[in-house]
Computed example of a mutant assay.
Amino acid sequence: MVFAIVTIATFITMEGITWCTHKFVMHGFGWYLHEDHHQPGYPHIFEKNDAFFVVFAIPSMLLFYFGIRPELNALFFIGLGILFYGIAYFLVHDVLIHRRFKWFDKINNWYFRGLRKAHKIHHKHLGKNDGECFGMLFVPFKYFKEYKK
Rank of each mutant, 00 (worst) to 15 (best):
T13C: 15
I68M: 14
P43H: 08
I78R: 02
V6R: 04
T7G: 02
F144T: 00
H37R: 07
P59I: 06
Q39P: 01
H44G: 08
V95H: 06
L62A: 12
Y89C: 09
Y32R: 15
K145T: 01
K106I: 10
I5M: 11
M136W: 03
K149V: 01
E15D: 12
H122A: 07
D36W: 11
V25L: 15
Y32H: 13
R69V: 10
F77N: 02
F52A: 07
Y147C: 00
N109I: 00
V55P: 01
F3Q: 08
F90Y: 15
P59E: 05
A88E: 04
P140S: 06
H22L: 10
A51V: 14
A88D: 11
L63A: 05
A74K: 08
F141R: 14
D105C: 12
I121T: 09
L75C: 12
L62T: 04
E15N: 11
E35T: 03
A4W: 13
Y89V: 07
D105P: 03
D130K: 13
M14Y: 08
W19A: 04
V139K: 02
W110E: 00
H44T: 11
E146Q: 04
G114H: 00
G81A: 09
T18I: 07
F141S: 11
Y111G: 00
M61T: 15
G135V: 08
T18W: 14
F76G: 04
H38K: 08
V25T: 06
L126S: 04
